[in-house]
Design a protein around this nucleic acid. Structure first.
Length: 430
RNA sequence: GUGGAUGUAGCUCAGUGGUAGAGCCCCGGAUUGUGGCUCCGGUGGUCGUGGGUUCGAUCCCCAUCAUCCACCCCA
């Protein structure tokens, strides 16, 4: 198959059979954002490589081995974005969106990471994210968490996901803790396994997550991040918890929750599910108060999250939470017979679309026997078949067959037909 | 990046060292203008790709590509 043209590994086609499912999800997202007054921002898929190196962190896995980086024709180093936050921050600074104002923004689009593909993990994948700027209190942390929770409610997922919460403290407190942790593990270097030794300087906090039973005692004796929070971060975290408690959002504190990107500080959170195997994180985010300044803007507090669209859709499918209407794409199927049939069918389709703008009308094309046409009508999923036989064409009437009930076929004039189909046209789409 | 499993019709899968089958789908007919059920018939495959062993490979061997699972990492 090597000589055949095929999609790049880990990059998938979205086929027509599944696109309604994505549209359903995307519609729900748009509705959510509107309900919270967030505005969409769209940024380019390509950015200067330096943007990601400076934001995500030079020694993270993403930057070290997962980015699609290449030279532009003029020699500039460009990178397909591996995540959305860096681009949004860059765009916000560049366009003056952060000048003495607050912003509540959202974005959606493809991201690229050169990882080994697996279920729920692809080289081109899609994220929907939210970023807020200029708000430093725990109220906005609570708001973005509430937003995500409401999306799960909209989608019927809320009972199937869990919120994990942690605080990394200020950048200084986090750095100090990290140092302390490295020293602790270095003092017990002989007890570390290969994995841990590798992580010691790249991602020491991940060592706490080890699945190696031989290291449990060592890990349990390690200093805890949550004991090393600075007073301000502690107060911020306590206030956030109080807000969530008051509103009734359940969560578990996960002291080992660290994000893979360097720019996070203070609040971090993840929504997880056990229904997707090893790729169980469907949404993750946190606060990144230092990033705007780090990328050249004036110091601006910020908090946001990103969710993985493939994983969420997979989860909706796994739990059979896709509403029936999401797959209904047609209301009526128009077919006609005879030499003049095509003209009559196309004309009726246009008249209907003019009178009922929301009605979804497909006109039969391509000939075939009467039997094959009505079979096509049935398989199209449409509720009604509109039949224009030679007799109907003479009389200006339309045969209307309800394909989803046992009702007798009716012969209606155009105005009665419009009245009959009007409810379809205004029915809520999923 | 590491380890393992799997690639046969559009889909789900049987199968054999002598160049292939089922079910579903699709098309046609039984039913000259009435779908869904039933019955009958039909289209469709360089058996992932390249090489090797062999008189002969879809089957055995090697490589490669892809998918899946776990690790790693992450959404």
């Amino acid at each position: 198959m090597s000589s055949k043209l095929q999609a790049i590994r880990g990059m998938n086609d979205l086929l027509p059979e599944r696109s309604p499912l994505w549209q359903y999800f995307e519609d729900q997202v748009r509705r959510l954002m509107a309900r919270y007054g967030y505005l969409e921002i769209r940024t380019p898929t390509l950015e200067q490589t330096a943007l990601f190196k400076r934001s995500i962190g030079e020694v993270t896995d993403i930057v070290e081995k997962e980015m699609y980086t290449f030279e532009d024709r003029n020699g500039d180093s460009l990178t397909l974005r591996p995540e959305g936050t860096a681009s949004v921050v860059r765009a916000a600074i560049e366009n003056g969106l952060l000048h003495n104002q607050t912003q509540r923004l959202w974005y959606a689009g493809p991201m690229f990471r050169h990882e080994r593909p697996q279920k729920g993990r692809y080289r081109q994948f899609h994220q929907v994210g939210v970023e807020t700027f200029g708000l430093e209190g725990p109220d906005i942390d609570a708001e973005v968490i509430l937003m995500s929770a409401r999306l799960w409610q909209q989608l019927g997922l809320y009972e199937h996901v869990q919120l994990e919460l942690n605080s990394l403290g200020s950048a200084e407190a986090r750095a100090a803790y990290r140092q302390q942790l490295v020293e602790y593990f270095e003092a017990h270097h002989d007890q570390l396994d290969d994995d841990a030794r590798r992580r010691l300087h790249s991602n020491p906090m991940r060592i706490l997550d080890t699945k190696n039973p031989d290291m449990q005692t060592l890990v349990e004796g390690a200093p805890q991040l949550i004991d090393h929070l600075d007073a301000e971060s502690q107060a911020h975290f306590d206030a956030l918890r109080t807000l969530l408690d008051t509103i009734g959002i359940e969560y578990v504190i996960n002291p080992r929750l660290v994000r893979g990107l360097d720019y996070y500080d203070r609040t971090v959170f993840e929504w997880t599910t056990t229904a997707l195997g090893s790729q169980g994180t469907i949404c993750a985010g946190g606060r990144y108060d230092g990033l705007v300044e780090q990328l050249g803007g004036r110091a601006t507090p910020a908090v946001g999250f990103a969710m993985g669209v493939e994983r969420l859709i997979l989860l909706l499918e796994t739990l059979a939470l896709i509403p029936e209407q999401a797959h209904d794409t047609l209301d009526v199927y128009v077919m006609a017979l005879g030499d003049d049939g095509t003209r009559h069918a196309l004309a009726l389709g246009e008249q209907l679309r003019s009178r009922l703008p929301e009605l979804r009308v497909q006109v039969h094309c391509g000939g075939g026997s009467f039997k094959s046409r009505i079979r096509r009508a049935d398989r199209s999923g449409a509720r009604y078949a509109l039949i224009l036989g030679e007799e109907e064409q003479r009389s200006g009437m339309v045969g209307v067959k309800d394909l989803r009930s046992e009702a007798e076929q009716q012969t209606l004039d155009f105005e009665t037909l419009v009245t009959t189909l009007a409810p379809c046209s205004s029915a809520p789409r999923a």
